[in-house]
Amino acid sequence: MISLIAQITTGDDLLVAQNIFWWFFALVTVLAGIKVVTTDNIVHAALYLVIVLAGVAVQFVFLGSEFAAVTQVLVYIGAIVVLLLFGIMLTRGSLGDDQLVDTERRGMGALVALLLFGLMAFSLVDGFEDVVLPEDTRNLIEVEVPIDTDIDDDEFIRTQRGSDTAAIGDTIFESYIVPFEAVSVLLLAALIGAVVIARKE
């Protein structure tokens, strides 16, 4: 907030706009997050979760991580929330019972949330303390692109700026190829497990 006031006085209009948007979306995310845990209707909680996840996607864009933002929308909002809603509809016969959502274990829940927040905040600050976001995030990510695909020589590979999607692709296919294949086995296990449970009836 102090930096925002400082920018208004120095007259950097575009940075001010960026910061106002940042604060707006951060506020919306936090308020929706509070509504997730305070609302009486569990379906409403799932729908408020959509706002929280969308807000996080916007923050990813502010960090220059387009791929993470799109994945957030595609997987979390598009699929995980749908799965959550199906889970709610499966496990609860009648959703009119409002009292069931509000529990008496608020103290324990608050404690767990506080511990989790402390742990994540510490690891984030510890890990990214000295990292400064560059002026144009897209310029920073460098991807090796061959000038001519016919020439099979490393010397003809130069660096040029690319999107972070390509950078993530390079990381997967250079360093994490085995975890990448392991993910498919994990997804397969999840699917087979769901089919087995559903068939028992």
């Binding site: 749908v82 509809m89 499966l90 016969g93 999840a190 699917l191």
Partner: peptide, 16 residues
């Protein structure tokens, strides 16, 4: 609100 069939859950999971 009525309890939905578990078959729909498999479709949702496959979508994920």
């Amino acid at each position: 609100w009525s309890q939905s069939n578990i078959r729909y859950y498999v479709f949702a999971l496959m979508f994920v």
